[in-house]
Design a protein around this nucleic acid. Structure first.
Lengths: 138, 138
DNA sequence: CATAAAACCTATAAAAAAGATAGACTAATA
DNA sequence: TATTAGTCTATCTTTTTTATAGGTTTTATG
């Protein structure tokens, strides 16, 4: 399961994407709209900003905004940033690989093989679906 | 990511499956072979037993054994038992569903839709692949 | 230039989950 | 009846997650 942090991030990003034309959006607005603790959300948005996904403006009339169009922000990127590996096992993770401590040889480990397939099938979706794809349907 | 508990369970089950013809297998043998804390493994095997996946025999000559042939034990079942939901979000979980607290209507939530697809693609593999499929390839 | 608005930053705390261990109990076998 | 091996329950430690607190900096504007 994705952490609350990542879940909140997705909802916040959706709100930002649905209001791209309205200039910078307040943290407090997002928090209220999406029912998220404002202080917790603050940290999350900051992290997204430091990763180059969001931009911000301070002071009156300030707030957060997307640095790129929604269709260029892949879901996988957000998950990896805030949650870490997408794979179910460290030994099949592309970005957070760790050697398996419990098997002798990953090259012949059947678990490794199957979990690699699960990773691929998830990535096929998460690398290609973007913020644009998770906006509210009407 | 799967918890250590689930990872250990898979490795233990593989060992049992690879030795079905040898009668009951000792916890201590599995622990040593797979490099797992024996006491921790004890709890895990007990949980698998209580779920009807393993059987056991006490006393000399005792140990654990599979209750069904490896090809009848789906990977999804093990994950759900020890790790809980396979889905990335509570609101798309088939077995551990929880309403989303952050969106107004799941029926029009794009995140819900995409994560549902991720769940389906993972389940397609995890419901169909069994213990037999994760044995060591030779 | 003073004020208020709003993001920034760092630290810490509280809660929950994960990982691991301890030790006494029960059943089976020889 | 001694030994072997799983059973049960409790506890402990560590890590991760979730959340909060409070001061700092930047910017717009009257």
């Amino acid at each position: 399961m994705l952490s609350k942090k990542t879940q909140y991030a997705f909802h916040a990003l959706v709100h930002l994407a649905e209001n791209v034309d309205k200039g910078p959006i307040l943290i407090s607005e997002i928090a209220q709209e999406k029912n998220i603790s404002i202080k917790f959300l603050e940290n999350i948005l900051l992290e997204l900003k430091n990763a180059g996904i969001l931009g911000s403006k301070k002071g009156k009339g300030g707030g957060y905004y997307l640095m790129r169009p929604p269709k260029e922000i892949a879901l996988a990127k957000i998950i990896r940033l805030l949650d870490g590996p997408i794979a179910l096992l460290p030994c099949v993770s592309l970005n957070y690989y760790e050697r398996c401590e419990n098997c002798r040889d990953e090259a012949v480990c059947g678990l490794n093989e199957v979990m690699g397939k699960v990773r691929d099938s998830a990535l096929k979706i998460l690398e290609n679906k973007t913020l644009k794809d998770i906006l509210t349907r009407n």
